[in-house]
């Protein structure tokens, strides 16, 4: 219990520190005091903060939280520490959904603002179903390697679909490319408004299954004996995770490895109990992406790096390390 109190306090503290720096640091230095004393600031500073930096930090936080929570749930459900929306190809599915929306200029009045995230989510779910059913076909026990390999195959295929669509577009090209690189810059409040209801729904779906996730770690048979409605829980977790991934991808493109690194670190420090793993992953996922975004926009200022570059830079080695550890342990 004490371990978790420490976990939550440290995680929340880090989130606040990260957010604070992310808001104050940038091409225009805004004194920290502006944050708690807005009246002292000039109009330009206030504008920068409330119109640009704050929404950017919030969006980065939301995307990070969504990806980390989805990653934690996928890893638990599949009992696979290498699973995350990116490695499973779910992010690519969401990308295809989003690119199609832009490419075909789809906009239905009934969905309105939510068209993009909804198509992203549908893409994510379709990719998830495709990956899982193919992996199951290859090997019923769905070994770690099978699943990851299937994810790569599906990702590669979906990437080519995206490339094809890009090649076929003319003037919309820049918009898609920009978006594909993975970035939370220049999105502003509308994007936050666009995704938050889905984040709440997806998050709740996973949160409701936190104990079921714990039971599922001991295998579906054991979970069944413990009284878990295995079928329902599995679907809720898959759909919930896809919703979160779809939302994240819809606003920020594909940002890899956040869903891998954060749950892994959190589990290492605070254990595999999903009652704590899920909320802690949310907080730490938000922190990580806020920090990554801060680095992305300051490291080669005045230019900006896509945020996906930073996360992959951290994520790929962690992926390699987990893979190495798992294989060694298996022997």
């Amino acid at each position: 219990m004490k371990k978790h109190v420490v976990g939550y306090s440290v995680s929340i503290m880090l989130l606040f520190v990260a957010a604070w720096f992310a808001i104050s640091v940038g091409s225009v230095k805004v004194p920290l005091s502006v944050l708690w004393n807005p009246s002292s600031a000039d109009a330009a500073s206030a504008n920068i903060i409330w119109k640009i930096r704050v929404p950017r930090v919030i969006l980065a936080g939301l995307v990070g939280a969504a990806l980390a929570m989805a990653g934690a749930a996928f890893q638990g459900l599949l009992k696979n520490p290498l699973a995350d929306p990116y490695t499973l190809g779910v992010s690519s599915g969401a990308s295809v959904g989003a690119v199609m929306t832009i490419f075909f200029g789809i906009s239905t009045s009934s969905l309105g603002l939510y068209t993009l995230p909804i198509f992203s989510m549908l893409g994510a779910m379709a990719a998830m179903v495709l990956v899982l059913s193919f992996a199951r076909l290859v090997d019923r026990s769905m070994k770690m390697e099978t699943l990851i390999l299937t994810g790569i195959i599906v990702s590669a295929f979906l990437s080519s679909v995206i490339s094809l669509m890009i090649a076929l577009t003319g003037d919309e090209l820049r918009q898609i490319l920009n978006w594909l690189m993975g970035s939370v810059s220049m999105r502003g409040w509308p994007y936050i408004k666009m995704i938050w209801p889905f984040l709440v729904i997806g998050g709740l779906m996973l949160w409701m299954n936190r104990k079921e996730l714990n039971a599922l770690l001991f295998g579906e048979e054991r979970a069944h004996y413990l009284g878990v409605n295995v079928k329902r829980s599995k679907w809720m977790i898959l759909v919930g995770g896809s919703i979160l991934t779809g939302c994240a991808v819809a606003v920020s493109g594909t940002i890899g490895f956040v869903g891998l690194v954060v749950p892994h670190m959190t589990r290492l420090l605070f254990g595999a109990d999903h009652r704590h793993l899920l909320p802690l992953s949310i907080i730490n996922g938000a922190t990580l992406l806020i920090v990554c975004d801060l680095v992305a926009r300051t490291i080669i200022a005045p230019s900006e790096l896509p945020i996906g570059v930073i996360t992959s830079f951290i994520g790929a080695p962690v992926f390699a390390y987990i893979f190495f550890r798992q294989r060694r342990k298996g022997r």
């Binding site: 638990g76 714990n214 770690l217 001991f218 413990l226 595999a272 109990d273």
Partner: peptide, 28 residues
């Protein structure tokens, strides 16, 4: 599950759990 508990022959588990966490799951 409140009426009948089952101990299967093979046990699978993923990630690390302490003994007390594992036993506590029996209260699900």
């Amino acid at each position: 599950a409140r009426k009948m508990a089952v101990l299967p022959q093979l046990h699978a588990h993923a990630f690390s759990h302490t003994v007390s966490e594992t036993v506590a799951l029996g209260r699900y």
